[in-house]
Design a protein around this nucleic acid. Structure first.
Lengths: 192, 192
DNA sequence: CCCGATGTGAGACTCTGTGTCACAACGGGA
DNA sequence: TCCCGTTGTGACACAGAGTCTCACATCGGG
């Protein structure tokens, strides 16, 4: 596990490059900013840039990749006597807590994503991966049937999405609170 | 409205080209099939191909674009005394009915999408557009607050997604039935 | 001091997606 | 009949994304 030195380094440069890239995109526009310009702004060659990031889009969405592991772990670590839905709630809140500190960056990113419809697809895909991670966690550690687990995960992530949307548009600044509010609203919606 | 002649023609060729493209992709692989090969297989020039389809990915997902309008209309046309969630259910079922006849093509497409992770993003984006269409329908025609409407729409589409997944993997062949089953399972999940 | 592993840059190459131009087909009006 | 706008089409050039290969640096350990 001494590889962690290199890995940490890599993660730090990824974070730094992401920051500069997002600012560039926000300033000049996503399509109008070439990957070569991003590389220059980050003091990297284009080659290295594409070694660090799979995609041009990854420059915008790579930040939250770590949260995938968090999602699965959170479900696994929840107290085993907790019912599945409660465990899922706890996991979702934990993700929300980890996203919190990134707020400034995410707000800027949202400006970019809003202007380029194609980027919305990537955001959706990210949430879909969360759903899958949460669902597999539920089935593996709690024996919830796969079909139900996926559906439950989708509900939780849906709540996360609406909460995050509120949060990023500036209404409130406590994402976990917004998330639990959305989760609590859920049962009432089905009765109408 | 005599433009409809040209529009109908265009839609028919789109459908035909889509069919050939999906088969090509399934046979040779998505990445390995160039847009030029698709154009050749469809007896078109590459120029014309990109006039008919925005994207290479659009060759896979363009088919269901019409369903967007259907989604919004279905919510609007539901009997006004129906509670919002019931109206939403009806709209979702109606979409499911329209998707039904496309099954063979969708199964083949799913083979392609499964092998190329990036394509999952487009599928997710498509469902997101459905969510938005349904939600705006709910707020516009039934006065449901925007935040709640979006969340409700997300729930319905989540059910649709799991139902469609079952349907495409061949378990059952009645999509509307699978969908209503998923919708009925919903309240029970939250109580656990 | 050397050596293999890893990180980095240079550059060539393919393919996607855009934009421009030219040319046909068509249909309506003078 | 001729003219003219509209629409659909192809040929082509071009910018940029993403891949690949090769060469060089850097660095920790023997």
């Amino acid at each position: 596990m001494t590889q962690t030195a290199a890995q940490r380094r890599r993660r730090r440069t990824r974070a730094e490059v992401t920051r500069r890239a997002v600012e560039l995109f926000a300033a000049r526009g996503y399509a109008a900013t070439s990957t070569e310009q991003v590389a220059a702004a980050a003091d990297l060659s284009r080659s290295t840039l594409f070694r660090l990031f799979a995609d041009k889009e990854d420059l915008l969405f790579g930040l939250e990749d770590d949260l995938l592991a968090t999602a699965a772990a959170a479900v696994a670590e929840a107290p085993p006597d907790l019912p599945p839905w409660a465990a899922l709630r706890a996991a979702a809140v934990r993700i929300a807590e980890q996203v919190g500190p990134l707020r400034d960056l995410l707000v800027t990113r949202e400006q970019v994503v809003a202007t380029v419809p194609a980027l919305g697809a990537r955001a959706a895909a990210k949430h879909r991966r969360w759903e899958e991670a949460l669902a597999t966690g539920l089935t593996a550690h709690r024996g919830v049937p796969a079909a139900e687990a996926l559906l439950m995960a989708k509900l939780a992530v849906a709540c996360f999405e609406v909460a995050q949307a509120d949060w990023l548009t500036g209404a409130a600044d406590d994402l976990p609170a917004l998330l639990t509010a959305a989760l609590d609203r859920l049962p009432g919606l089905l009765e109408r």
